[in-house]
């Protein structure tokens, strides 16, 4: 067993959250810069230049890249051989994550965007609760990934239960259609997370988890899905939607597909879109 201090986890997670909402990651900056250089549409090129300028201003002024500092989502990979020292006064890891998130949002003056109830809609005032997804694995490491997920892009998500008779082409066409329907709403150029397989609940989790993949240009290790990602990105960037939906080539920066086993009667598919302010990061402890 390895002992791990929750105080250490808390301080690391807090700075992860603060960093993610202010500093665009190097792979995103590279991706935007590369796309700006190759963008054939002049006003789209200007838009991409403005997004890069926005990232510079946020970093310099230490303010959020986007006013929608999002719902806080954690994906935790928890080694079975870990023993936590409760040296921060919390009851454990979940409470530690929640408090680190709340403190980061309050101290950094991030917007609190969560409401208590979907119909009565009172702001919780501290962006709580964060959504926490757990996965367990052998060993003694702890990996915590964070995504600040904006509401506008989240609203463009789609889920469909296909049947096994459907071809890969039909599913790809549906994914592209999802991006076209979203148009300018999710603040393109977007990152497109796709989940295939699993069941009704895990397929949307897969689609969101797909957004975590770094670096941005990394392909699925399975060449079958790597090829699908490449085709999808090409098709999406052939739609002409462009940055901010004002026309141009750069509609998406990356498409990440994650697949999982499913029931022989089913073929679930889900799309979770993220905006160009792709605020994703991780700490490994």
């Amino acid at each position: 067993m390895r002992r791990l201090s929750l105080s250490l986890v808390e301080s690391q997670v807090k700075s992860l959250v603060e960093r993610c909402c202010v500093d665009l990651s190097a792979d995103l900056l590279d991706g935007l810069e590369k796309r700006r250089g190759g963008e054939p549409c002049p006003w789209a090129e200007n838009t991409l230049a403005s997004l890069l300028e926005n990232a510079r201003v946020a970093s310099r002024e230490r303010i959020p890249l986007c006013q929608d500092t999002g719902m806080a989502v954690f994906f935790v990979l928890l080694g079975d051989d870990l023993l936590f020292e409760r040296d921060n006064g919390t009851k454990g890891l979940e409470e530690t994550l929640q408090r680190a998130m709340r403190d980061a949002y309050r101290e950094s003056s991030f917007r609190t965007s969560m409401v208590m109830d979907p119909l009565r809609r009172k702001n919780t005032g501290d962006n709580s609760p964060a959504f926490v997804h757990w996965e367990f694995l052998p060993g003694d490491s702890l990996t915590i990934s964070f995504i600040a997920k904006g509401g506008g892009a989240e609203n463009m998500s789609r889920l469909k239960m296909f049947t096994p008779a459907c071809s890969a082409e039909e599913i790809e066409a549906w994914i592209v259609e999802t991006v076209v329907q979203a148009g300018s709403n999710p603040c393109p150029p977007t990152v497109v997370g796709v989940g295939l397989g699993g069941n009704f609940d895990t397929v949307s989790w897969l689609a969101k988890r797909a957004l975590l993949r770094t670096p941005l240009e990394a392909a699925n290790l399975d060449p079958f899905y790597g090829g699908m990602e490449e085709r999808l990105l090409k098709k999406i960037n052939g739609t002409g939607i462009g940055p901010q939906g004002l026309g141009g080539e750069t509609t998406s920066l990356a498409v990440h597909v994650e697949a999982a086993p499913c029931h022989m009667a089913t073929l679930p598919a889900a799309v979770n879109i993220n905006c160009h302010a792709h605020r994703v990061g991780r700490v490994v402890l």
Partner: peptide
């Protein structure tokens, strides 16, 4: 159509951009 971040102590305004008009 916007909801700004709170004003941080070191600045006169927070960050603000548009939300989805639809």
């Amino acid at each position: 159509y916007a909801g700004p971040t709170p004003k941080p102590p070191h600045r006169h305004v927070g960050s603000v951009g548009p939300t989805t008009s639809g």
